[in-house]
């Protein structure tokens, strides 16, 4: 465990470079229409894959608790929108389910 600083710096480098390169490659050119549509699909595709199925491991002992929190976010978000209340509310619902109060 004595050589941990080089590991951290190496990890920092291989994390930073993939974050930087696309900016250097793409930001000063106009991209082809198809590539543009491809790029515009990335956020929705990424968010789908980031949520499913990862959310089930947010509360590993009781996946239903995290699912309950997400259901609150889903309904409140569709009904009223916003970010803060759906997020804090989901934590509250998850907490109550874990406590066994819901």
């Amino acid at each position: 465990m004595n050589n941990i600083i080089p590991i951290i710096l190496g990890m920092a480098a291989v994390t930073y470079l993939p974050r930087l390169l696309p900016f250097l490659i793409l930001s000063n050119r106009t991209v082809h229409k198809r590539l543009d549509v491809f790029l515009k699909c990335i956020p929705a595709a990424a968010i789908g894959a980031l949520i499913i199925p990862g959310v089930l491991s947010a509360t590993p002992d009781m996946p239903m608790a995290a699912l309950g929190g997400m259901i609150f976010t889903l309904f409140f978000g569709l009904w009223r929108g916003g970010i803060i209340i759906p997020v804090l509310g989901s934590v509250a619902v998850t907490y109550l389910i874990l406590l066994g109060m819901i």
Partner: peptide, 28 residues
């Protein structure tokens, strides 16, 4: 238990961000 529950926040954040777009567009 509270720390565990807060683990859901990152996922509900992503969901809350995408919901208004999902509502507007079937493609999304």
């Amino acid at each position: 238990l509270l720390t565990k529950s807060m683990g859901v926040a990152l996922y509900s954040l992503l969901l809350a961000i995408i919901l208004p777009e999902v509502k507007k567009s079937f493609k999304t």
